[in-house]
């Protein structure tokens, strides 16, 4: 398991620049006709903004920087830099530069994998950053492709909400992440991109993350009566239905039914009174 290359805001040095040129070289000398098998196009605009040197440099300024290193690079990756994994090499991203420029204190962590840029943000100004990414004339991330979550039970904040953005005009992709603790309510993205409405309902349904300000925070795939959130890592995978399946009466939100094989009345569902007061959850 290789460690992921994490680049914090100011933790930049020459090595990052070096890996960028390495990666360019690997791509350049590869056979052209077969195309990129992984389906990742190289980012087109603004060749290599050296994010390490100064975050505020406009993208087109230093295109000459990687060039001098290029001739020497082909020999170096196997020998000099065994850790330079081309998959985790940093790639230039105009969006990341702009986020760093305007919201430098909001970026927690930046990850690169297979030419994808993933930025983990703090929750406080997330909606502001989303609006900026959507409306900025140079970025225009107007298309929210996907929203999902990942459950990491061992972390202090166990949930990661992941947003996959795409810009139809500039053909760029950008992944954003927010951390969410148990019971914490991250802001809804549905005010910025209406498509997030159903995605967030699905995340709520399968992970139990409620989104603050969401217009309709109800289950979407499971029935409204379902108790539990199946995509959590602690959701039981084995056992008989009566061991863990429960249904909640959504009209009163006070009764929880468990399955009892011996009971014929009510199709085997046995009522147990439980004061939750939560409803629909």
């Amino acid at each position: 398991m290789r460690p992921r290359l994490l680049v914090k805001k100011s933790a930049s040095d020459g090595r990052n620049g070096q890996t960028v040129t390495d990666e360019n070289d690997i791509k350049g000398e590869g056979p052209a006709p077969p195309g990129d098998a992984s389906g990742t196009p190289q980012p087109r605009p603004a060749p290599a903004p050296e994010k390490s040197a100064a975050p505020k440099t406009p993208p087109p300024a230093p295109p000459a920087a990687p060039k001098p290193a290029a001739p020497a690079a082909p020999a170096s990756p196997p020998a000099a830099a065994p850790k330079a994994n081309p998959l985790t090499a940093p790639v230039p991203s105009a969006a990341l530069d702009k986020i760093r420029e305007k919201f430098s204190d909001q970026v927690i962590e930046v990850t690169y994998y297979a030419s994808e840029v993933t930025v983990k943000l703090k929750q406080e100004r997330a909606e502001e950053i989303w609006r900026f990414l959507r409306d900025d004339p140079g970025l225009r991330f107007d298309y929210l492709s996907n929203v999902t979550a990942v459950h990491w039970p061992e972390r202090p904040k166990p949930f990661e909400v992941v947003y996959h953005l795409f810009s139809i005009s500039t053909r760029q992709r950008l992944n954003l992440k927010l951390d969410a603790g148990e019971g914490e309510q991250p802001p809804t993205a549905s005010r910025v991109w209406p498509t997030a409405n159903w995605h967030e309902r699905e995340v709520f349904d399968l992970f139990g993350i409620r989104f603050h300000g969401h217009p309709d925070m109800t289950r979407i795939l499971m029935t409204d009566e379902w108790v539990g959130h199946p995509l959590r890592k602690d959701y039981p995978l084995e056992g008989k239905p009566e061991d863990h399946i429960q249904l909640r009466d959504v009209t009163t939100a006070e009764h929880v039914y468990t399955y009892d094989k011996s009971s014929i009345k009510g199709f085997g569902w046995k009522k147990e009174v439980e004061k939750t007061g939560e409803g629909r959850g």
Binding site: M1, R2, R4, S38, G39, N85, L87, T88, T111, Y113, A114, E116, T118, S145, N146, H164, R173, N175
Partner: peptide, 10 residues
């Protein structure tokens, strides 16, 4: 595969 995460669209 090595540890990492990808989003691939077709």
């Amino acid at each position: 595969p090595p540890a990492g995460e990808v989003y691939h669209v077709v």
